[in-house]
Design a protein around this nucleic acid. Structure first.
Ligand SMILES: NC(=O)c1ccc[n+]([C@@H]2O[C@H](COP(=O)([O-])OP(=O)(O)OC[C@H]3O[C@@H](n4cnc5c(N)ncnc54)[C@H](O)[C@@H]3O)[C@@H](O)[C@H]2O)c1
Ligand SMILES: NC(=O)c1ccc[n+]([C@@H]2O[C@H](COP(=O)([O-])OP(=O)(O)OC[C@H]3O[C@@H](n4cnc5c(N)ncnc54)[C@H](O)[C@@H]3O)[C@@H](O)[C@H]2O)c1
Lengths: 248, 248
DNA sequence: AGGCGCTTGTGAAGGCGTGCACAAATCGCG
DNA sequence: CGCGATTTGTGCACGCCTTCACAAGCGCCT
């Protein structure tokens, strides 16, 4: 595989700062911490303890401290973490200071909702282009952005240097759209279409599949039902690692 | 769905069949296997090898075999797995034979798209009710289903025995909606609003947060960029556990 | 200045998940 | 009827992640 020795945090050529290689599990939690921190900042909090931030993010405080320790020592013992400083740190690590350009392919039912979603811009992303294959959709104005034809993807992507693409087309066309995105230089894809995408190894794909989420919930329903029917009527907590039962 | 013999988990009252406790990671992959199997069934395949199914689902074949072995021995050495049988098995385990009733709260931008989504019904779920707090939305007909007022949730949930609720309201109201769902007897929640929900321990919550997905992609963009700027121009593959670079 | 309480950062242990490698089992064919 | 080809099921080792527990560090109060 890819072994790559990065010197850890300290000394680095000044153009490109050091880049710690964080555990995947930590990276997946950083956005949650960031959201909690922004919320805290709005309430005027200057600092926050690991306990407090952990509660706000729905995780164990030890896990939070270990996660943050991977970024470096940005806390003060006896006091806590400086909220503003930590926000900057996490945003830097996540690369959110770049205001990344995103394009969306497939302006149907779902794509329409996504295109109008304000949560993108507020979290460091700019939707700069919408594409569809349907001539009737092309030209349509959504939230101040005109839908363009998929054939223009290549050109537009180059002009706007789009690095992230979102796929919201029917499952059957998802692979060909992914291929087009890759050909246009996109190196990160968020896919809403069910199914497996095949892409070069330097391209990252994340997938969101509602049906999968529901089916996992269904499993737990099934499990709970079969347990309550048994002697001990007590329903034990799920082994689910997600947030749950956060005592507030 | 008739009687099924699970080799494991012996001695059980016959009304409720044995229920193997599967690893969380396995459960999360079963829906993906199921989708791949349905696809195979459509192409007329009678059986499939672990290698073939693994490729279709975008996972390692050893992992797939271990996952399936947790459900019992439903394969035949030298031949493979019986597609139809495996479909039934997985659907049974996931509780999809129950055609579970789902309600959706918050018929806004996103909720509207979800309400019209055909992928629910085709995968074993029935959206039986839509709720909103906005009087202007109440009464609106979406895909043959009338939007009802959130105050009717309690009553409707009891009538339809709804076990799964989907939250698509603004973040600020998500917690109160969750409380209402729980009060109405819902024991599984799929939450699209950013933030942490607090629910009793017998309620399962899964969350879908687009911004988090994009931020994770952004991190990898940042990482890739900082690596290409360094001596070794080669960009290594991500540690991402998701599907990626599946040799077509 | 010194002590005290609080909080971070981390070493160590345990658990979970993954992937390899191979024995066991089954089928088809000569 | 036996043999080889094929594929499952799994024991095992390894690495990642989580969690505990505590020493080290910091600020405040006296
Ligand atoms: N609607 C939902 O709530 C929902 C939920 C989960 C997943 N999904 C998935 O998201 C995807 C989109 O769902 P939808 O309901 O919006 O479907 P849709 O049919 O309403 O929209 C699909 C759009 O993609 C366009 N399109 C088709 N082929 C294209 C191509 N090659 N290039 C560019 N555009 C193309 C179509 O013109 C159409 O506008 C589907 O894969 C669906 O399974 C949808
Ligand atoms: N639109 C998207 O693409 C998108 C993407 C990701 C996440 N989200 C999240 O999904 C949620 C909904 O997004 P949206 O764009 O659909 O917002 P929206 O404002 O368009 O819709 C919200 C709907 O919820 C209803 N509502 C508000 N309070 C309610 C209550 N107490 N009970 C019942 N209904 C209530 C409102 O009347 C409105 O119809 C938000 O939390 C958003 O952050 C949206």
């Amino acid at each position: 595989m890819s072994q790559q020795r990065h010197g850890s945090t300290p000394g680095e050529a000044d153009g490109v700062p050091a880049f710690p290689d964080l555990p995947e599990a930590t990276i997946a939690r950083l956005p949650e911490y960031l959201r909690a921190l922004h919320h805290l900042a709005e309430t005027g909090a200057e600092t926050v303890s690991s306990e407090g931030l952990a509660a706000a993010a729905g995780v164990n405080s030890a896990k939070l401290r270990k996660d943050l320790s991977h970024l470096g020592s940005y806390g003060t013992r006896g006091v806590g973490y400086d909220v503003a400083l930590l926000v900057d740190q996490i945003e830097y690590i996540l690369g959110l200071d770049k205001n990344r350009a995103v394009c969306l392919v497939g302006v149907g039912n779902l794509g329409h909702a996504l295109a109008g979603y304000a949560g993108f811009a507020s979290r460091g992303f700019r939707v700069v282009a919408l594409f569809d294959a349907d001539p009737k959709k092309v030209g349509e104005d959504i939230n101040g952005l005109a839908v363009q034809h998929i054939d223009d993807l290549q050109r537009v992507a180059a002009e706007e240097s789009i690095a992230i693409g979102v796929i919201a087309t029917p499952p059957g066309t998802a692979q060909s759209v992914a291929d087009a995105l890759v050909a246009a230089g996109v190196t990160s894809i968020l896919n809403f279409a069910p199914g497996v995408l095949s892409v070069p190894s330097n391209v990252d794909v994340r997938k969101v599949d509602l049906a999968i989420e529901l089916q996992i919930l269904s499993f737990h329903e099934h499990r709970k039902a079969s347990l309550t029917a048994l002697p001990g009527g007590r329903v034990p907590a799920t082994g689910n690692s997600d947030q749950e039962a956060v005592g507030s």
